[in-house]
Design a protein around this nucleic acid. Structure first.
Lengths: 124, 124, 124, 124
DNA sequence: GTGGTCTAGACCACC
DNA sequence: GTGGTCTAGACCACC
């Protein structure tokens, strides 16, 4: 995985973990890489990783047990929330950018409906 | 404006000009910043700017007159094409990311329809 | 081969490849020298070679596959076009230079007809 | 004027003088620039200029009078010869290059005849 | 190994 | 002043 600088790396790390959760690549109770390991693998500063882990802890997304490591929390009901949040961010970004291209809300809806129709056609 | 490293700087420069065109901040015949000016403003190397300008020239988006500068081409019919291309890129990116979050095409459409309905509700 | 400074090196590189194509020394699908190899052989900077290769790519004369190299496109119908373009350039240059020597168009034609006749005589 | 390195500069200097003669910009008896002046104007090495002047003297194209300068020789009958020589060089170069592009002598003649016809059409 | 991007800076041509 | 070409070399991504 690569980080870009379109937003802070610690947020990209959180997104990275969240995506793994949503895709089922990580489950409640799973141990994730130690901060040091993660920093080495991703070639980022350990402080950046620490900040990401701290934020995830405060969201109760992960739990750190001293001397053992960092583990995904057992809160499957959070999954749907995270997924919706990320989807909401994507939708918001999409709408804002389309808006700055001069698309009205109606035009956006039409474009999407057109795509929806095309998708349905292809599925036939 | 700052560039991120999610894609090459020269492509971001092209997007930057395209957006200005679409928003009407630039029109056919307008002179854009000289390569050196642009490079200084954006704190990138003049060669990078030149590459962007050269690519835009090959797209017939701008025209360069040596010793005078670079000018927006007089092709208003291109505007719609550029707008559609950029919108298409946004839509594609949105779909891919939603897909990687585990949303099916149907789920995406539903989310959008829901948003559409909310928008209509707000407009009432 | 050596480059002269009667025109930009990157254009001379393109001409060089075009000539090989026309003479049949290169065919569709052939791999041409890597950018670094070509630069070393011709003693020019790799960036200059890259510019030439990039221009040829935008002409759809070659195709580049990252990590593999650059390959001649499979477009035999282009050959005739390239040949005619290069011949046209030669003819234009010939005419201009003759004109600057004070030859009228009629005089040029006469000179050529004379040469044509001599050629026919020799062929007898 | 600019020199390129497609052939030795001293030959390009000779061609330069010859062209001026043919165009009538120089006539028998005219004084041409001193070697030092010429070298400064054209930003070339004085030795190169000297070589060119020496060659032109041996062709009896110019004459150098010590303490006065270098003068065009009074040999108008040479003009036609020089013109024909230069035209011959152009023709030869044209033919060779066309040949290397795969044009047969017949094809070249046809191309030229086509051009001749087009020229005549335009002149109507 | 391959190509792709970018910087830094020289030098030139045209205005 | 403007853009155009070229070199030298770093660093990255893909294979």
């Amino acid at each position: 995985m690569e980080f870009n600088n379109s937003k802070p790396i610690y947020l990209q790390i959180i997104d990275y973990i969240k995506k793994q959760l949503i895709r089922g690549e990580l489950k409640g109770g799973d141990k994730i890489s130690s901060q040091r390991e993660f920093a080495q693998q991703m070639k980022v500063n350990p402080n950046t990783v620490q900040r990401a882990y701290r934020e995830m802890e405060s969201m109760q997304l992960v739990e750190t047990i001293r001397g053992q490591g960092t583990f995904i929390c057992n809160q499957e009901e959070m999954l749907a929330v995270i997924q919706e949040e990320m989807a909401g961010d994507l939708l918001r970004h999409f709408i804002e950018e389309m808006y700055s291209l001069g698309y009205s809300k109606e035009a956006m809806v039409q474009l999407i409906e057109k795509w929806k129709t095309e998708v349905r056609e292809e599925e036939k």
